[in-house]
Design a protein around this nucleic acid. Structure first.
Length: 802
DNA sequence: AGCACGCCGACT
DNA sequence: GTCGGCGTGCTC
C-alpha cells in the first residue's frame, strides 16, 4: 500500500502529493488525514496523508514512511477537500493551507544531529566529540574548528548528518496521588511510625483526613494545602501509602472562573420576526446565507445565542466568529454563561498549549460550540448546524499573509458542505455583502431599532476648521466641556484616536528634515513612554534626536498626534481624571487587554482613550459620552474603502454610548464636517450611505462592481522587482480579455518595507474565466525563472489597494 | 591543493 | 525550502 503525502516544504514544485510505501507494520495504523514523518531528499520532514492507494505510477525509488505522528487523523475528509479548494482559490501551497487549519503545535520542528557510524573504529572521536554517545544533537556546542573537522569526517563517511522530526504536540500531564489504604490503615501506620518522623506522621494524618469517598487527589493541591515537599511525597510512595499516576489534562484558559448560568432573554417584536424567519427555513431544510443588518445595540448577540441553542438542541454543533479585538471577556462570558463547558474559545491570546487543548476538546466532541477569531473557522467540528460571522464587514476576517483567505468564503464553503445556514451580522455591512443581499444572493434580515428601545445616541459634529481660530488644542471647547460634565456626574467617557504613539512624525523646523526609517519609506513615530523613535512597519527603533541630523540645528519639533500625547494633554486638562490608554503598546502582554477593560468596566477609570480596538463590542452602561478626536485620519487614507471604513468606525464607536439606561452623546471632531461618511454616521443612516457609496464605486469601477486581484512583486533590488512586474503585466495582457482592466506596475504606497522594494499590479474584472489558470501558471513560472530573488504574491480580493 | 561561494536541479 | 553536486576563483 502507498500513501499520497503532501510534504512540509514551501515550494511550488512540491505543491503536489508524493508517494510513499506504507510499511507493513503500519498498514492498519496509517490513515488518511494523519501526519507522518517521511524521508525527503536527504532530510526527514513532516507530511499529511492525502490518500491511501494500492498502486503507484511513480517509477523511481519509493521510500517507506518512517512513522506515523498521530494515533488518529488530524485532518478530516472535509478538511482535506477544503484545503484543495483553498489552495486553488487563494494561490497558496497546499501545505500552508493545511497548516493554517491546525493548531501551531501540530507543526513539527526539525533538528539536525551528527551520527558516528562506527564508534569502535574511532575511539578518539567517540570520546572527544561524541562524549561517549552515538549521536550529538546540539550542533551549536562546537567551535568552528571542531565543526570543520566533523564535516571533513562526514566527507570520509565516518560521520553522517541525520535529520529528525520533532513533534511539538504535547498533552499536558498532571500528577495525581492515589490512596492505597483505608483511613483506618493510615491511622494504624501512623501509630507505628516513630515519633521523630514528624513529617511522615503529618502526611499520614493528612491522608487519613481525606474524605472517605475520595480515593485520589491532585498532587499539587495536596502538597500546597498541607505544606509538604516533593521529598515527603517520595517517601510516601516508597512506603506504599500512595501511588503516583500521570493523567492528561486540558489546559483551560478559563479555568477557575465562575460563569453564572443565564437563560434566554425575551425577544422583542423585530428580533422575534428575524429569529422565526431563519428557524422556519431551518425546519423546511432551506439553506441560505443571511445578512443580518441590525443597528448597534439591537440585540444581535442574543439572536445568535438563541439560534445556536436551537441547533444544539437538535444535536448539531455551532460556530461563531468574531473579530479578534472584539473577542472580549464580555463576549466569552455571554457564551460560557449560556452554554457552559460545551463552548470552546479560540483566539490569539491563548498559549500554544491552550490552543491545542481547545482544539482537542472540539475534536473529541467535548465541545460543540466554537467561538473564536478568524482561524477558528477551521475548527474540527463535525455536523455543523449553523455558522455565524459577527461584524461581518471587519477586515480582520481576511488573512493578510499566505494563505490569504477570507473567513467569510470559508464559512460559506463549510456551510455548503454541512448543509447549514450562515449568518453574516453587522450594523454596517460591507458593501460587497450588502450588494449581494440586494441581488438576493444573501437573504436580508433587518433589526432597525435598539433592543430595549433606547434611542440611538445624539451625534454632534464639531468643525475643527472653525475651532482652530479660537483654540488650537487637540480638544475642542465643546468636547472639553462635555468631558468635564461627565467627570462631575461620575459617568464615563470613551475617546477614539486612530493613531498610536506620541507624534506621527518628527521634523526639523529649520530645514524640513523628517526622521525616516532606514529600512522602509515611512517616517518614524515618536514613542515618549520608552523615549524611542519606532517604525510601525519593520519594528526599527532609534533614539530621539536632540538636534537635526542634517543641519544640526536645535529645531526638532513633533508633529501630529498619537494616543500617548493625547493622554498627556488630557491629564493636563483634567488632572483629577483617571485615564486608561488602550492601544497595541499597552495591550501587548497577555491579559492586559482584559485587565484594562475590567478596570474601566468596574468604574475604576473615568476616561478610556484608545485606538480602534475600543470601537467594538464594548458594552458599558455607564458610558454616556463618546468622542472621536480626529475623524479625518481614516478618511484621508487614499484607498477606495476609506469612506466605508470611516463610516463603519464612527458608527461602531458611536454605538458604545448610551447602552444602559442613561442617554448617550457622541462628538465627532473633523476638518471635513460636510463629508457624507461623517454626516451619515451622524444620522445613523446606513441605507443612505450604502446608496451614495455604491454610486461612487460604480463610477470608479471599484468593488463590488468589479472583482479585484492584486499581484505584488518584491525584491531587495528595485530594478529587478520592476522588470519582473512588467513581464507579468505583459503576460497577463496576452491572456486576459479586453474588458479587464490592468493597473500598474506601480510602486506600493510605501515603496520599501524592511529593505525590500514592492511593486503592484491590480486586476479589475467582471468575468475572467481564464484568470485562475493564468495566475496558477504565473506562480509556477516566476518561481522557476527568478529563484528566490523576487517574490510574487497574489491577493484575491485585497482589503486595500495600498 | 583546499575550500568558500554561487548556481542548479532534485526531492516519492 | 533545503540539500548536495559541481564549477569557478581566491588564498595560504
Amino acid at each position: 500500500m502507498y500513501a499520497k503525502v503532501i510534504v512540509d516544504v514551501w515550494a511550488n514544485q512540491l505543491n503536489r502529493p508524493f508517494d510513499y510505501l506504507i510499511p507493513e507494520e503500519f498498514e492498519d495504523i496509517i490513515e488518511v488525514g494523519m501526519r507522518v514523518a517521511v524521508p525527503f531528499g536527504s532530510r526527514t520532514v513532516q507530511g499529511f496523508v492525502m490518500d491511501i492507494v494500492l498502486e503507484t505510477t511513480f517509477e523511481g525509488k519509493i521510500s517507506p514512511i518512517i512513522k506515523p505522528m498521530d494515533l488518529e487523523p488530524v485532518l478530516t475528509p472535509e478538511m482535506i477537500l477544503l484545503g484543495q479548494h483553498m489552495s486553488q482559490t487563494v494561490f497558496a501551497f497546499l501545505i500552508s493551507c493545511y497548516q493554517t487549519m491546525l493548531p501551531p503545535m501540530l507543526k513539527s520542528k526539525y533538528e539536525k544531529y551528527f551520527h558516528l557510524k562506527d564508534p569502535e573504529a574511532y575511539p578518539e572521536i567517540y570520546q572527544n566529540y561524541f562524549n561517549g554517545e552515538d549521536t550529538v544533537e546540539d550542533v551549536g556546542q562546537f567551535t568552528n574548528q571542531e565543526l570543520a573537522k566533523l564535516l571533513r569526517l562526514r566527507k570520509e563517511g565516518v560521520v553522517s548528518v541525520e535529520h529528525k522530526v520533532i513533534d511539538k504536540a504535547k498533552v499536558k500531564m498532571e500528577d495525581w496521588l492515589i490512596r492505597l489504604q483505608s483511613p483506618m490503615d493510615y491511622q494504624v501506620i501512623q501509630a507505628a511510625t516513630p515519633l521523630k518522623a514528624t513529617k511522615q506522621k503529618l502526611f499520614l494524618a493528612a491522608l487519613e483526613a481525606l474524605p472517605k469517598e475520595q480515593s485520589e487527589i491532585l498532587k499539587k493541591d495536596f502538597v500546597d494545602q498541607n505544606g509538604f515537599t516533593a521529598a515527603d511525597v517520595k517517601t510516601a510512595i516508597s512506603k506504599g501509602w500512595v501511588k503516583l499516576e500521570k493523567r492528561p489534562v486540558n489546559r483551560d484558559p478559563y479555568a477557575g472562573r465562575e460563569f453564572t448560568q443565564t437563560n434566554a432573554l425575551q425577544l422583542n417584536e423585530a428580533q422575534q420576526l428575524v429569529f422565526d424567519e431563519v428557524l422556519h427555513d431551518m425546519r423546511q431544510d432551506i439553506v441560505k446565507t443571511y445578512l443580518l443588518e441590525g443597528v448597534t445595540g439591537s440585540g444581535k448577540t442574543e439572536l445568535y445565542l438563541q439560534w445556536i441553542d436551537e441547533v444544539i438542541q437538535k444535536g448539531k454543533s455551532a460556530m461563531m466568529l468574531v473579530p479578534e479585538i472584539s473577542l472580549t471577556p464580555q463576549m466569552v462570558n455571554r457564551f460560557k454563561s449560556r452554554f457552559g463547558d460545551r463552548v470552546a474559545v479560540l483566539h490569539s491570546g491563548l498559549s500554544a498549549g491552550e490552543k491545542f487543548d481547545e482544539w482537542r476538546k472540539i475534536k473529541n466532541k467535548e465541545a460543540d460550540i466554537v467561538v473564536g477569531a478568524r482561524s477558528s473557522i477551521f475548527a474540527p467540528i463535525e455536523d455543523i448546524g449553523i455558522i455565524i460571522l459577527d461584524e461581518e464587514h471587519e477586515s480582520s476576517y481576511k488573512q493578510e499573509e499566505n494563505p490569504r483567505y477570507h473567513a467569510r468564503d470559508i464559512a460559506i464553503w463549510r456551510a455548503r458542505y454541512h448543509h447549514c445556514p450562515v449568518i453574516l451580522g453587522s450594523a454596517t455591512p460591507s458593501l460587497e455583502s450588502r450588494a449581494r443581499a440586494q441581488k438576493s444572493v444573501y437573504q436580508l434580515l433587518e433589526l432597525p431599532t435598539r433592543a430595549k428601545d433606547q434611542p440611538l445616541p445624539e451625534v454632534k459634529i464639531i468643525d475643527m476648521k472653525q475651532e482652530y481660530s479660537k483654540n488650537r488644542g487637540t480638544f475642542s471647547l465643546e468636547l472639553q466641556e462635555a468631558i468635564k460634565d461627565r467627570l462631575d456626574k461620575k459617568e464615563q467617557t470613551v475617546l477614539l484616536l486612530n493613531r498610536r504613539g506620541y507624534s506621527s512624525f518628527v521634523m526639523c523646523r529649520d530645514c524640513g528634515y523628517v526622521l525616516e526609517c532606514p529600512n522602509c519609506d515611512i517616517s518614524l513615530t515618536l514613542h515618549m513612554d520608552v523615549h524611542q523613535m519606532k517604525c510601525h512597519y519593520c519594528g526599527f527603533e532609534t533614539n530621539i534626536p536632540r538636534r537635526c541630523p542634517k543641519c544640526f540645528e536645535n529645531q526638532i519639533r513633533y508633529y501630529g498626534t498619537g494616543t500617548q500625547k493625547v493622554e498627556e494633554e488630557l491629564q493636563e486638562l483634567f488632572p483629577e481624571a483617571r485615564i486608561i490608554r488602550m492601544d497595541v503598546d499597552t495591550t501587548r502582554k497577555k491579559g492586559q487587554h482584559e485587565a484594562l477593560l475590567n478596570k474601566f468596566g468596574s468604574n475604576q477609570a473615568d476616561i478610556l482613550l484608545g485606538t480602534q480596538m475600543i470601537a467594538k463590542g464594548l458594552d458599558f452602561p455607564n458610558v454616556t459620552l463618546v468622542g472621536v478626536i480626529n475623524a479625518d485620519t481614516s478618511l484621508n487614507i487614499p484607498d477606495f474603502r476609506s469612506f466605508e471604513r470611516t463610516f463603519q468606525l464612527l458608527t461602531q464607536v458611536a454605538g458604545r454610548a448610551g447602552r444602559g439606561d442613561l442617554a448617550g452623546e457622541v462628538m465627532i471632531q473633523s476638518f471635513n464636517p460636510e463629508n457624507y461618511a461623517i454626516q451619515l454616521a451622524k444620522s445613523h443612516n446606513y441605507r443612505e450611505f450604502y446608496a451614495r457609496e455604491m454610486q461612487v464605486r460604480h463610477m470608479g469601477n471599484y468593488p463590488p462592481y468589479v472583482f479585484t486581484t492584486m499581484i505584488t512583486v518584491s525584491s531587495e533590488e528595485e530594478g529587478l522587482a520592476l522588470r519582473e512586474a512588467v513581464k507579468i503585466r505583459q503576460y497577463l495582457e496576452q491572456i486576459l480579455t479586453g474588458q479587464t482592466i490592468l493597473l500598474g506596475p506601480t510602486p506600493k504606497s510605501i515603496a520599501r518595507i524592511n529593505k525590500r522594494y514592492y511593486f503592484q499590479i491590480l486586476i479589475k474584472y467582471k468575468r475572467e474565466p481564464q484568470l485562475t489558470r493564468a495566475l496558477n501558471e504565473l506562480m509556477l513560472q516566476t518561481q522557476q525563472t527568478t529563484a528566490n530573488k523576487v517574490t510574487v504574491s497574489i491577493d484575491v480580493e485585497p482589503m486595500s489597494f495600498l
